[in-house]
Design a protein around this nucleic acid. Structure first.
Ligand SMILES: [Zn+2]
Ligand SMILES: [Zn+2]
Ligand SMILES: [Zn+2]
Ligand SMILES: [Zn+2]
Ligand SMILES: [Zn+2]
Ligand SMILES: [Zn+2]
Length: 131
DNA sequence: GAGTTTGAAACT
DNA sequence: CAGTTTCAAACTC
């Protein structure tokens, strides 16, 4: 754990962080903000990673041990539709407006150049685009 | 923080 | 498979 420069305070989970420079000791996964998916579809990054929601900002969340039965069925259902659903993505993007240079693009977000599996338009995320 | 944009995921 | 809708995150202001 690198020390934070300056006077930032490392704090665990809990109530509202008082300061703007508060950092989390355990760089936990970022909280999701799902509302309609109940965190039981791949829209939810927690669910997509088979993680329970923890300290998330979701509403109507069922991705928790309290809903183990529902959650397990949702996982099974998702996997039955797509056996690769819970495997690391490698499918390629289909961006049309971001030039694959914004985080809307999964390739860009992953720090990977677009490849043969991508079907993007106006892509600028290719080998040689780095100055 | 509210509103808009974006493209994966879901659905038909 | 293609077209459409839904959704939550990225982005903008
Ligand atoms: Zn969620
Ligand atoms: Zn979550
Ligand atoms: Zn949740
Ligand atoms: Zn892309
Ligand atoms: Zn790509
Ligand atoms: Zn691309």
């Amino acid at each position: 754990m690198a020390k934070t420069p300056g006077n930032s305070v490392v704090v665990g989970v809990g109530g509202t962080p008082p300061g703007s420079n508060t950092k989390y000791e355990t760089a936990a996964h970022p909280p999701c903000h799902c509302k309609k998916s109940k965190c039981l579809k791949l829209y939810c990054d927690c669910f997509a990673s088979e993680r329970y929601c923890s300290d998330c900002k979701c509403s109507n969340c069922q991705n928790s041990p309290d809903f183990e039965d529902i959650r397990s069925k949702a996982i099974a259902d998702t996997r039955s539709k797509n056996p690769n659903a819970f495997k690391p993505h490698a499918t390629g993007c289909r961006c049309k407006k971001s030039a694959c240079l914004k985080k809307y693009c999964e390739c860009f977000t992953a720090g990977v150049v677009c490849g043969g599996n991508c079907k993007c338009e106006g892509c600028k995320n290719f080998v040689g685009s780095q100055l």
